[in-house]
């Protein structure tokens, strides 16, 4: 394999980019180094934004052939591609042509198509979680009973009717939130921080290479 294709090169780049951010934070290296560090963050945001079409290409790779070959459900793919193209064209930042984020068609579409769709997509989980509460939330063991009781008390704390009937639900709910929940989350946070530190060191030293596969391969 040619040297420039070797995986060590991106690993070195990763380590250098990480050190550009880490070293000036711990050592006083002067204003010019700090300015370079800050400019570098902005610059790499431009590099990152360059990937904007990657997701779109991946989606189009799936839907365009489906439309061309009239495969099952090609009609929906047409709607997807049409919607994508319309949103993109009217949202292009060419204000000289009246296009851009404040274009009236773009505003209409995000206000009346994207907004209801996006907010409803996530709200539908309410039904599934309620159904799951009915089917799976069982007091099968002491641990499960603690979970169930704590969950139920929180439901009564969050429902205004619960605290209206007995203000004690609010006090108990606050205690559950501030003591067992806070302690559990803190332990997870500390564990997660330790894991992040280890992962960082592994990535910088080349032991962690999974991210270089680009995902899904």
């Amino acid at each position: 394999m040619a040297w420039y294709k070797r995986v060590e090169i991106p690993i070195i780049i990763t380590a250098i980019c990480a050190l550009i951010q880490i070293l000036p934070y711990y050592f006083t290296l002067g204003a010019s180094v700090e300015d370079f560090q800050a400019t570098f963050v902005n610059w790499q945001m431009v590099v990152g934004t360059g990937a904007t079409f990657v997701g779109a290409i991946a989606i189009l790779q799936l839907h365009i052939p489906r439309i061309m070959k009239r495969r099952p459900q090609w009609e929906y793919s047409t709607a997807l591609v049409a919607m994508f193209v319309i949103m993109l064209i009217f949202g292009l930042p060419i204000r000289e042509l009246g296009l851009g984020l404040d274009n009236s068609v773009f505003e209409f579409l995000y206000g009346n198509v994207l907004t209801p769709l996006s907010s409803t997509m996530y709200s539908i989980i309410a039904f599934f979680i309620a159904s799951a509460a009915y089917r799976a939330f069982r007091a099968r063991s002491l641990e499960a009973t603690i979970l169930l009781v704590a969950g139920s008390l929180l439901l009564l704390k969050n429902a205004p009717i619960g605290t209206a009937v007995w203000p004690g639900f609010g006090t108990i709910g606050d205690w559950l939130f501030n003591v067992p929940n806070m302690s559990t989350q803190r332990a997870i946070l500390i564990g997660g921080a330790l894991g992040a530190i280890v992962l960082g060191v592994r990535a910088m030293t080349g032991y962690e290479r999974g991210y270089l596969r680009g995902g899904g391969e």
């Binding site: 995986v7 090169i9 921080a193």
Partner: peptide, 25 residues
């Protein structure tokens, strides 16, 4: 493709790494 990926990952890693020790540990 790994070159821009390494730049973004490295910078993100460095930014998180430098403060996670204090802020979250």
């Amino acid at each position: 493709y790994r070159i821009p990926l390494a730049i973004i990952t490295g910078t993100g890693l460095g930014l998180a790494f430098r403060t996670v020790v204090f802020a979250q540990l």
